[in-house]
């Protein structure tokens, strides 16, 4: 019973990060209707930015996450302006294979530039844990979780309260009407794409203290992110929060029952089941 409570606690904290990295995916889909299969590769880039910031500038990855967000936001902005802009009105096949091509390009660019070795950071709190009654709170998990909560709060404020956020949601609902209201839709798309991949990069940096980074690390997160957003409903930010925590808890609890190799299998089957039974997501409704 105690181990179950511990697994749920760990799952919630890991799931908080899953929520943030998946928000980027759902945001891009919500605003532009594009499923970015390469989303997890931006997470990988964020991890690398944070790693280099730690190695050469001595910046803790938790602070480096803001740096990662900034750098990958700029990259996303540029990619939207050059590549993705051209496939907005294209059939799904072009969108799918543009992002699949991007996976190959990003992973192999990282391999060329940074090499294939596994890199990790050393932080003073890496092995620390707090006692909470009978339970232990892993400090890197907690730090990543709290950072994700802050990030999620900022995103909520941005989308719900700021002019840019409202303009972006208007663009998502009806690009033509938004344009008539004087909103530069193309600019909103660049902003949304930059924000979307930036969020995943931010989450990637936040989990760096307890993981290692290497060029293909993203593939671990691809199906996971899709499971999160499909669980919550593609395009729904609130859904990503619920889905993220749910996936974190399921993943963590399933390790109590199944051998570690089958951990992902549980996730895949859950993913297929949700797609088959409720493709609009557990939260239901549109956006």
């Amino acid at each position: 019973m105690l181990s179950l409570a511990q697994a749920v606690l760990d799952g919630v904290m890991i799931g908080g990060v899953y929520a943030v990295i998946s928000m980027g995916l759902t945001l891009v889909f919500g605003v532009m209707g594009i499923v970015n299969f390469a989303q997890a590769q931006f997470l990988m880039l964020g991890m690398f930015v944070a790693w280099f910031a730690w190695r050469f500038l001595g910046i803790d990855p938790l602070l480096g996450s803001f740096l990662a967000f900034g750098a990958i936001f700029a990259l996303g902005w540029a990619l939207q302006a050059t590549l993705f802009r051209r496939v907005l009105a294209a059939p799904p096949v072009a969108q799918i294979f543009l992002t699949v091509g991007l996976i190959i390009v990003l992973e192999n660019s990282a391999l060329l530039l940074f090499g294939s070795e596994f890199r990790s950071v050393a932080t003073p709190y890496q092995t620390a844990s707090l006692r909470l009654g009978e339970l232990f709170v892993n400090v890197p998990y907690l730090a990543a979780f709290l950072l994700s909560v802050v990030c999620g709060g900022l995103l909520w404020w941005f989308l719900d309260r700021s002019w840019f956020g409202r303009a972006m949601r208007a663009t998502a609902q009806d690009p033509m009407a938004a344009r008539l209201m004087g909103i530069d839709a193309a600019r909103m798309h660049r902003l949304a794409f930059g924000l979307g991949v930036g969020l995943s990069a931010f989450g990637g940096a936040a989990i760096l203290p307890y993981l290692t980074v290497y060029p293909t690390v993203g593939s671990q997160f691809s199906v996971l992110m899709f499971t999160v957003v499909v669980l919550g409903g593609l395009g729904s930010i609130a859904g990503a929060v619920v889905g993220g925590v749910a996936v974190g808890v399921i993943q963590s609890v399933s390790t109590l029952v199944f051998p570690i190799q089958l951990q992902n299998l549980v996730l895949f089957l859950l993913f297929i089941a949700v797609l088959a039974l409720r493709p609009e997501g557990l939260m239901g409704g549109s956006r």
């Binding site: 499923v35 799904p92 969108q95 199906v223 190799q261 089957l269 993913f271």
Partner: peptide
């Protein structure tokens, strides 16, 4: 096909992708 038939576009691509991955995990295990 049974679970994925109704899906279209991105959803179908995602579901079939996961089916391939399921087989990979099973073969590895």
């Amino acid at each position: 096909s049974l679970p994925t038939m109704r899906l279209r576009g991105h959803y179908f691509a995602l579901a079939t992708l996961a089916c391939g991955e399921v087989m990979r995990v099973i073969a590895n295990t």
